Structures are given as structure tokens and as C-alpha cells.
Computed example of a mutant assay.
Amino acid sequence: MTRRDLLKLGALAGAATMIPRALAQASAPAPKPKPVHVDALDGVARAAQPLNILILGGTGFTGPHQVRYALARGHKLTLFNRGRRPKEWPAEVEELTGDRETSDVKSLAGRTWDVCIDNPTSVPHWVRDVGRVLQGRVKQYVFISTLSAYADTATAGMTEDAPLAKYTGPDVMQETRATLLANLALYGPLKAACEQEAEKWFPGLTTVIRPTLIVGPGDDTDRFTYWPVRIARGGEVLAPPPEDPVQLIDARDLAEWTIRLCEQRAFGAFNGVGPAAELSTAALLHGVRAAVGGDARFTFTTAEFLARQRVQAWSDLPVWVPGQGETLGFHRVSGRKSVASGLTYRPLAVTAADTLAYWKALPEDRRAQPKAGLRPEREAEVLRAWHARPAG
């Protein structure tokens, strides 16, 4: 797998959760809220200094977790989206509407907030438009970026000062989500350009978070979800090389840490990666099995074999990418700075069990159409090929 392939798969997965939702909001009533596992937040301590927080895109994957945690910490919240979802939020959450794709951000004009958290942006003109109305009106701008913003993933231990991808097209401000979908290799460069645009409008007040694969209840891409669901089904499970590393972050850990960074007024870039210690593919799968139960038996294969069978990393066997070559460093990114700033992690067992519970609560027709992972018949075909390969 090349870096270009990985960027395409990552961008496609991200775009798949954003664009259809945005189009639906523009033409249909607010959808029925998705079932999302709710943690008990009664014991969360109130923040020493309540903040007035604006969240752009607070209704997606990580947004609802941000909202709930921020409310538990005693903060005041305003959400900006294309459509209202009055049944999804308690009365104390203010909702503003607009359309960033058409530069309609007038509902933000003339207002002030302590913090603005920008969750869904993947094209720079969205940052520019918000910057024009919020410059001088927020004390901190938090941009949720991606590890794909880095120029390459071939080096292990990459820190936040590693080189970023460069946009080489004709005009970065003319790029839209439609042009991104047409050329998914733009995903990393456009995210990097968004970071630079944020610093232009909010110099010295910008916080950039570059997450790895975001997982857990509420994930609509089914990438990590494939493993708890497949392992719970039991039987022989096709698995990637056992020694390759894996990094992921529970959406709730990411969301809660983001709010704490706001409370600290922590500026600069942070890698949103986890867990704290390196996790191998084998440890991941065995950990999921311990959490969900069942009699799953893992058949670990090799990257070379999977390539010959046209089994795609990241999509057919989600979460995993080869731990060598152009993706050697993709799952070996340094998270030391983030841990020092207060990033904490739920146990893998909690993430796995809650993800499976979330999946089981989805409608049957949705569960019949998983968006990632191998179909049972295709998995069985590849397993037969593995067992029939020549000895040695």
C-alpha cells in the first residue's frame, strides 16, 4: 500500500460521514438521532472557570461527546450547523444555522466566544469565512485536523513539528468538498492548508489536533467496528500480520481532551494518538476478543499474501496498515506531548464493548450493510487460499 492509497481510503472514509449528512440536512427535516452510547458523567468535576464555547459541527461523531462533556464541566455551548436538532440537545445548548459550503456564516457575526472548536472542516475557505467574522472575537480557535496532514508516514516516532503536506493545485480557496471527493489525494494537503489558514486568522491563538483513527460508539464508518462485530460472530478470523503496530483513539477520549485543552488555553499542535503504549495487531484483536467474548480463532497472515489476494489494508481489514515501507510510521506517531497535556485513554475493552453495543442498537437494515471489512464469503475465500498456499 502506498501513502497515496492510504490518503484516498482515509479521505473517502471521512468524506463518507460528512458529505451525505450535509446534503441530507440541506434538503430534509432533522434526522432521528443515532443511538450513541452514553457514559455516566455525573461524577465529572466542574471546571474552575466556565467557558463560552462555540462548536462548529457539533452533531457528527465526536461533536456529541464534546457537547456532553462540556456541559458536565459547566461550560456554555453554542452549536453551528446546517440544520437544528432540537430533540438531540438539552435546552441550554444554543443552536445557530448556516452553510459553510456557500460561505453563509452570518449567524456568527457580531458574537463573541471564549473558544471556537472547528470539527468538520476539510477545505480552507471554510476557515477563511469563519476567520473573517470571528477574528478578534474568540480567544482560542481549535482546529481538528488529521495525521494525514503530514508530508509522509514512512518515519517512526513523528512529532508535531514534522513537515506537512503541501497543496500544489491552482487555487486552494477554490477547493470544495466536491472537488475533494473528485480527488481524494487532496485530503492531507487541504487539511494542512486549513491549519495554516487558521493560524493566519488567529495568530498565536490556534490549537491544532491531529487525530489518528477515531473509533468508538457513534462511528458511522464501521472501520474499527468491524473487529468487535466480526470477533463476536466467532469462528476462524482472517487477521493481518500480528506484529504490525496499531494506533487509534476513542472518540470520547478525543472529545474530552479537546475540552480540557480549551480550559488550559493550550496552543500549538498536538497528535491525537493512542494508546499510551504501542499496541500490536495481535494485542488489539486479542483484547477485543476478551471484551466481546466468543470462540473466535485468529489466523494471522502476511502483508505480502494479503496483497496477492487483493485484500486492502484499512478498508478490507480495517485499522491495520503495513508496518513497513511508506506506512512504517503511520501507526508509530509520537503522542508524548499530548499525554503530557492531559490526554487519557479508556481501556480497549471498554471501547470494544461499547462499540459492539452501539452497533447492535442500530436498525437492522443498517447493520445489513457494513461500510468496512470483508464480507463473510470473501473472508472464507482468502482463508482457503492461505491454508492452500505452498509450504515454506
Score class of each variant (00 low, 15 high):
5 D>S: 12
14 G>T: 07
15 A>K: 09
17 T>I: 08
23 L>E: 15
25 Q>V: 05
30 A>I: 07
30 A>C: 08
33 P>L: 11
42 D>R: 10
48 A>V: 09
48 A>D: 13
51 L>W: 14
52 N>T: 04
53 I>S: 02
59 T>Y: 01
59 T>G: 04
60 G>F: 05
60 G>D: 05
60 G>L: 02
60 G>P: 03
63 G>Q: 04
64 P>V: 09
72 A>D: 04
76 K>A: 11
79 L>G: 02
82 R>K: 04
82 R>A: 03
88 E>V: 06
88 E>D: 15
100 R>K: 13
101 E>T: 12
102 T>S: 14
103 S>R: 10
105 V>C: 14
109 A>S: 13
111 R>I: 10
114 D>L: 07
122 S>C: 08
123 V>P: 03
125 H>F: 12
127 V>A: 08
131 G>C: 04
132 R>W: 04
133 V>K: 01
136 G>V: 02
139 K>I: 06
139 K>T: 10
146 T>N: 12
156 A>F: 01
157 G>K: 11
161 D>G: 11
163 P>R: 13
170 P>T: 00
171 D>M: 02
174 Q>G: 12
178 A>Q: 14
179 T>G: 02
179 T>N: 03
183 N>L: 07
187 Y>G: 05
190 L>H: 11
192 A>T: 04
193 A>S: 10
194 C>E: 10
196 Q>E: 15
197 E>A: 11
197 E>H: 07
202 F>K: 02
202 F>M: 03
204 G>T: 12
206 T>P: 11
206 T>L: 02
207 T>I: 00
209 I>P: 08
210 R>F: 01
213 L>I: 03
214 I>T: 14
214 I>V: 15
217 P>G: 02
222 D>N: 15
223 R>S: 08
226 Y>G: 12
228 P>S: 00
230 R>W: 04
230 R>H: 01
232 A>V: 00
232 A>P: 02
235 G>H: 08
238 L>N: 08
239 A>K: 15
240 P>F: 00
240 P>Y: 01
247 Q>M: 09
248 L>D: 01
248 L>W: 13
251 A>I: 00
253 D>H: 13
261 L>T: 05
264 Q>K: 15
265 R>N: 12
266 A>N: 13
268 G>K: 14
271 N>A: 10
272 G>Y: 15
291 A>Y: 04
294 G>R: 03
295 D>T: 09
296 A>C: 08
296 A>H: 10
303 A>E: 03
305 F>D: 04
320 W>A: 03
327 T>C: 14
335 G>D: 00
340 A>C: 05
344 T>L: 11
346 R>V: 06
349 A>F: 14
356 L>C: 11
358 Y>H: 13
359 W>S: 06
363 P>N: 06
364 E>R: 08
368 A>E: 09
376 P>C: 13
377 E>G: 00
387 H>P: 10
390 P>Q: 02
